[in-house]
Design a protein around this nucleic acid. Structure first.
Lengths: 158, 158
DNA sequence: TTGCCTGCAAAGTATTTGCATAACA
DNA sequence: TGTTATGCAAATACTTTGCAGGCAA
């Protein structure tokens, strides 16, 4: 976990140095916060997480650093439709997509090679150069599914 | 084209009546505008389209009507990452996904049954109840791909 | 008539930008 | 020392909300 964070941080500082950009303490802090997060944090949640540890970083800086991280390819950007962006370190893991519970907001990841290949072929068939894609499945997770079924059986109609 | 619009409008007015909601002229205007659009209009483009025809509808009403249309299931909502929502009538067509050109913004639709089925199976494997999904492939359309290749060959490096 | 709708303007939310100051290389 | 970053606050862009007056059923 920590080694993954360190490795990614290393790649980020190298990315900055390569283009003569200063490696500031704020950039390192924000990068660390994203790399260490297991969830899919928002800009605000990252800033709050830092604040809780007594590390004060301005909002604009958080956003600007996240842009850099996305540009560097070390962080993926998502929009699950809650009105704000979410971020996620690429880490060494395979490309994966998301299942999103519309009830509790839980996000579960899944990988499927056949799916990935299929999308590249589809792009090709439409003379598109495939660069990236986004697959999101919305529904109910098992917990919420059970809760809904229970609520349903306690009522006669509707 | 017009018949499709009429059929959808009919379903929308029925939807409203079913829940005792007034069928106002503004609602009909907004609904017609969405149903008749071939593209993936935004709230603002719909309002402007109406304005051009001399039909003045308030911004809030446009948004409120679009919400109703989405709720009714007659309109699909998208977020292609340009900072605003886009809308699209479901019409009678099959479910389809989108290829989005990152250069010119062109959106091409495609359908693929195998893909649709695969996503339902994946949801099931993760004990999720599949409700809907979104698949977006980002890349370059053939036109922009050609333009990029031309630009590349006219320069030696970079 | 009654309840829901409409338009306006103000508020809200996430994100971006301008600018004086501060930190990195 | 010269860039480039930072933080603050103001600006932005889309969308939502509050409210007084106006229609649909």
């Amino acid at each position: 976990m920590v080694e993954r964070t360190d490795a990614l941080l290393d790649r980020f500082t190298r990315y900055l140095r390569d283009r003569r950009l200063p490696v500031t303490s704020q950039r390192v802090l924000v990068a660390k916060a994203v790399f260490a997060s297991a969830e899919h944090p928002s800009a605000e949640s990252l800033q709050r997480a830092l604040g809780r540890r007594g590390e004060r970083v301005g909002t604009a800086t958080v956003y600007r650093t996240l842009d850099l991280l996305v540009e560097s390819g070390l962080v993926r950007q998502h929009d699950f439709g809650d009105g704000f962006r979410r971020f996620e370190p690429v880490s060494g893991r395979a490309i994966h997509e998301h299942l999103i519970c519309q009830r509790c907001g839980r996000v579960v990841e899944f990988t499927n090679d056949r799916l990935e290949r299929m999308l590249e072929i589809i792009a090709d068939e439409h003379t598109f150069l495939h660069r990236r894609h986004r697959v999101e499945v919305y529904g109910l997770c098992s917990d919420c599914r059970g809760r809904d079924a229970a609520a349903l059986s306690s009522t006669v109609s509707r």
